[in-house]
């Protein structure tokens, strides 16, 4: 389930990213498109779970890759690229959520275009509704922890927060989620 995050840090794949980065920096659009394909799932997922809106998530993901293209000269390695994408997407999601309300009712929450095999749509909706009630930062922290499998220190670096703030958000967010999920399960 956490394979994408693990795969991105694999040395062979990071080498491939490195080669693509070098070519993309020279203006090779095919190489840049290959980079987009390799990372689009990770970027789009973070955006989609963050804003729960297909159009908005695509807009955020596209903006992130446009910004990546402009920042290519400053990105040195494949590992740097993965961290940069995660960080930029997270900040874009937080900025978007500052000005837009997230849908909270079950009917408002959209479903992803592709439902993963073995998923329980109803149970997942309950989780997403509980997530939607968290503050943008708390939601991002929970997402980075459970979707990207990041350690609290890595989350702190990604979101420019202190480790204590991350731990506190995570603890409080999980308490709220557990309480809501337990309440829903008891109905």
């Amino acid at each position: 389930m956490n394979a994408p995050a693990t795969l991105l840090t694999h040395p062979a794949l990071a080498d491939r990213d490195q080669r693509l980065l070098l070519s993309a920096r020279q203006g090779d659009l095919d190489a840049f498109e290959a980079l987009v394909r390799r990372h689009q799932r990770k970027v789009y997922s973070l955006a989609w779970y963050g804003v729960r809106d297909e159009m908005l998530a695509e807009e955020i993901a596209q903006d992130v890759f446009m910004q990546l293209h402009a920042s290519l000269p400053r990105i040195e390695t494949g590992a740097h690229l993965a961290a940069w994408l995660r960080r930029t997407t997270s900040h874009r999601v937080i900025d978007t959520l500052r000005v837009r309300r997230l849908p909270r009712s079950l009917d408002e929450i959209a479903e992803p275009q592709v439902v993963p095999a073995g998923a329980d749509p109803l149970a997942d909706r309950l989780v997403h509704r509980a997530l939607a009630r968290l503050t943008p930062r708390a939601r991002l922290i929970v997402m980075l922890r459970y979707m990207d499998d990041l350690a609290p220190t890595e989350i702190a670096e990604t979101l420019d927060m202190s480790l204590n703030t991350v731990k506190s958000h995570l603890r409080r967010g999980l308490l709220v989620l557990r309480a809501r999920l337990t309440r829903e399960a008891a109905r």
Partner: peptide, 25 residues
């Protein structure tokens, strides 16, 4: 709840043609 969170937050693919749209933009 931890397992439910992990299961509910599986990565999703963007709509078809995403990379081409980025390239066109």
């Amino acid at each position: 709840p931890d397992a439910r969170l992990r299961r509910a937050l599986v990565p999703v693919d963007p709509p078809d043609g995403f990379a081409q749209r980025v390239r066109a933009r």
